[in-house]
Simulated assay, not measured.
Amino acid sequence: MKKLILALTASMLLASCSVTVPVNATSNSVGKKIGSSSTTSIFGLFFDGGDASILTAAKQGGISKISTVDFKSTNYLFIIGKFETIVSGE
């Protein structure tokens, strides 16, 4: 029984969870370019100084006309969180 509890606890700690949600869409045609920007946090308190803004994501993808914006949040070990903004357009 102790091995089962230990195995369940270990699997819960090693699991990650990722959620992607749409933030915005425009009337611009959907282009083939995609850009992203991200930042990482520990315990939701300490950030790595990254920039997860829409403007930075558009610059990374060489996008001047944004068509869609998505936000992706991934958590590892319930401790580390990665936040990413994904932009598509022309």
Score class of each variant (00 low, 15 high):
Gly61Trp: 04
Ser41Pro: 07
Ser64Phe: 11
Gly31Glu: 07
Ser53Ala: 10
Gly61Asp: 03
Asn28Arg: 15
Ile66Phe: 02
Val69Cys: 06
Thr68Ile: 03
Ala10Arg: 07
Thr56Val: 10
Ser29Thr: 05
Gly49His: 12
Lys33Gln: 04
Asp70His: 14
Ser37Leu: 09
Ile63Trp: 03
Val23Gln: 15
Pro22Glu: 08
Thr20Ser: 12
Ala25Met: 00
Asn28Ile: 09
Leu45Thr: 08
Ser53Lys: 10
Asn24Gly: 07
Leu13Tyr: 14
Ser18His: 08
Thr20Val: 09
Asp48Ala: 08
Ser64Trp: 11
Ala10Leu: 15
Asp51His: 00
Thr74Arg: 07
Ser11Ala: 13
Met12Arg: 15
Leu13Val: 15
Thr26Pro: 05
Lys65Thr: 11
Gly35Met: 01
Ser16Asp: 09
Lys72Val: 09
Leu55Glu: 02
Gln60Ala: 06
Ile42Thr: 04
Ser53Cys: 11
Leu45Ser: 06
Ile54Tyr: 01
Pro22Thr: 07
Ala10Trp: 12
Thr40Pro: 00
Asn28Ala: 12
Lys32Asn: 07
Thr26Trp: 00
Phe47Pro: 07
Pro22Gln: 10
Leu55Trp: 01
Lys32Arg: 01
Ala15Gly: 12
Asp51Gly: 05
Ile42Phe: 06
Cys17His: 15
Leu45Asn: 06
Phe47Cys: 11
Ser67Phe: 00
Thr9Ser: 14
Thr56Phe: 07
Ala58Ser: 05
Thr9Asn: 09
Phe46Leu: 09
Val23Pro: 13
Met12Val: 15
Gly49Arg: 11
Cys17Pro: 02
Ser11Phe: 14
Met12Phe: 14
Leu14Gly: 13
Gly50His: 02
Ser38Gly: 12
Phe46Asn: 09
Thr26Tyr: 00
Ile34Glu: 07
Ala52His: 12
Lys59Thr: 05
Val30Glu: 00
Lys72Asn: 15
Lys59Leu: 03
Ala57Cys: 07
Val30His: 01
Ala15Met: 14
Ile54Phe: 04
Ala57Ile: 13
Ala58Glu: 03
Ser18Phe: 04
Thr56Tyr: 08
Ser29His: 07
Ala52Thr: 07
Gly62Ser: 02
Thr26Leu: 06
Thr40Trp: 02
Phe46Glu: 11
Val21Asp: 11
Met12Tyr: 13
Ile63Met: 03
Thr74Trp: 02
Val23Asn: 13
Gly49Ser: 07
Ser73Met: 12
Pro22Ser: 11
Asn24Asp: 04
Lys59Arg: 06
Gly31Asp: 05
Lys65Ser: 14
Thr40Leu: 00
Ser27Ile: 03
Phe46Ala: 08
Ser36Thr: 02
Val30Ile: 08
Asp48Gly: 10
Ser18Pro: 01
Leu13Met: 15
Ala57Asp: 09
Cys17Glu: 14
Ser16Asn: 13
Leu13His: 14
Ala15Gln: 15
Thr68Gln: 01
Ile63Lys: 02
Gly62Cys: 03
Ser11Pro: 03
Ser11Gln: 09
Ile66Ala: 05
Ser18Leu: 11
Lys32Gln: 03
Leu14Arg: 10
Lys59Ala: 00
